[in-house]
């Protein structure tokens, strides 16, 4: 069956991008404010349900694999510094934060996110920087994969092992150089396509409907309810 991007499912429900942006922001704030382990685990279960439930919605579960090295490092350092309990809580919180962000970005098409931010009066250059980052991070990810293959194929062992740490330069240097080359080409393209001219006649978002207000109200209620439940204890 053909997979459908998650934001298209959201569009079918006719939810305004501003509402989705707001509720997504609330969810991430809830993850940051969570203090107790049962609440962290409850969040993890909710997020897992969201990510696996939207399996056909093209949530890129594979991209979450990239977080494990960082989570392992945070666990190891906090275990040495603060002990097992703190390390466990910090690691779960970090995983939840990544998962919530991944889910959030999958519910908004980049252009919708730009439209929502523009209606919130965020300056255009900042929006462009965010959009460009969203556009080019996957490209740099692919470049890194190509570099890994090219180095391995010529005998430079860059597998993720402690003994190979000094050789990580063989990945980082080409990546950095190609990122700079891409940035220069991007600047040339922007200049040639008239980026410095002011954008006019930008299509506006429609009015916020009662459905959106209800959606946002439910989001706020869930946010307050969750924090209240967490502070009082399960």
């Amino acid at each position: 069956m053909e997979s459908v991007p998650l934001w298209e499912s959201a569009n079918r429900l006719r939810l305004d991008p501003r509402g989705r942006l707001f509720v997504g922001g609330l969810f991430i704030t809830a993850v940051i404010l969570t203090r107790t382990r049962p609440a962290l685990i409850a969040e993890s279960l909710l997020l897992a349900l969201g990510i696996f439930g939207f399996g056909r919605g093209k949530v890129r579960r594979s991209s979450l694999h990239l977080i494990w090295p960082m989570v392992s490092a945070v666990f190891a350092i906090s275990f040495l510094a603060f002990g097992l309990e703190a390390a466990t809580d910090l690691s779960i919180r970090l995983v939840n934060l990544f998962a919530a962000s991944a889910l959030f970005f999958q519910t908004l098409a980049p252009e919708e996110l730009a439209g929502a931010l523009r209606s919130l009066k965020v300056p255009d250059p900042l929006i462009f920087i965010l959009m460009t980052a969203l556009r080019y991070v996957p490209l740099l990810g692919r470049t890194l994969r190509n570099i890994y293959d090219a180095q391995t194929a010529r005998g430079i062992d860059v597998r993720l092992r402690l003994t190979n740490t000094p050789r990580l330069l063989a990945l980082l240097v080409p990546l950095l150089v190609q990122a700079f080359m891409l940035a220069e080409n991007l600047a040339m393209a922007m200049e040639s396509r008239g980026f410095s001219r002011e954008a006019k006649g930008r299509p506006r978002l429609g009015p916020i409907s009662s459905r959106d207000i209800l959606f946002v109200a439910l989001g706020i209620a869930a946010f307050i309810g969750f924090l209240f439940w967490e502070r009082r204890g399960p």
Binding site: N146, A150, A153, R154, G155, L171, L172, P174, Q178
Partner: peptide, 22 residues
């Protein structure tokens, strides 16, 4: 076969030479 040994048998050169230089 481990990567450094493997290249003694089969070496691959990909399209973009900039992927190699460090």
């Amino acid at each position: 076969i481990p990567p450094p040994m493997r290249v003694r048998h089969v070496g691959v050169s990909f399209q973009n030479p900039n992927d190699q230089f460090f």
